[in-house]
Amino acid sequence: MQKLKDFAHGALVPVLLLLLWEAGSRFGLFSAVLLPSPTAVAIKWWAYLLPMQPQEAGQSTLAWMLSGELLHDAYSSLYRVIAGFIIGAGLALPLGLLMGASPRIYDLFNPLMQILRPIPPIAYIPLAILWFGLGNPPSFFLIAIGAFFPVLMNTIAGVRQVDGIFLRAARNLGVNQWTMFTRVILPAATPYILAGVRIGIGTAFIVVIVSEMIAVNDGLGFRILEAREFMWSDKIIAGMITIGLLGLAIDTAVSRLNNHLLRWHRGLEH
């Protein structure tokens, strides 16, 4: 009952806004081309979700149900985010661990990182196209850059803040350097690293939408730009809502993973 109340409380503002918007559209306050009514957007979103072709012979019902444009776009975008993120974070994590653990390696790489870090991933678009042409590769490249720096900076900070008492206790127990790294420094740094992962995924998600506007012909970013060319503002908004939902889903998944991996950590509810 309390949950229902909380939900109603949280839904109050969005619902009120939707009602105003709908009413405004009905009374002709907004141009239907520039700002279609919520119902028009919902109808378009539904059509976008449903399969475009009738079920073919030999096609399974599930495959058919999942053959809609929206699901295809969402899958393409998600695939790019994950692939690009894995490349970026996969490079940032070992480098960050090394830079955090060794002042010499830090001094070696830090100047370069400080110069590259302020360059927004979007500024790499021209190079990305020159180097990788069209299709997924330039997207992967841009997303990897977007994910790289948050993970790198947090990993460095995470390794550096490891409490000396853990290192002393581990040395006392007789660990060698490798075990110190894998069993003590890495887990002690996970709260920071995972915070970097969360920021990195968020950046990757921003970059994927931008990258899809330049070099590919599917994905949510591509779809809303395409819709603009046809003045389909209902589809643009439907696409944007899908982007929001997908982003929320990704963030929820990462946050769940966080809570699981950090179940030992003080100050976390689980």
Partner: peptide
């Protein structure tokens, strides 16, 4: 150690 120094992730 006075601060216990247990590994909190274990």
């Amino acid at each position: 150690f006075q601060e216990y120094a247990l590994f909190p992730w274990m």
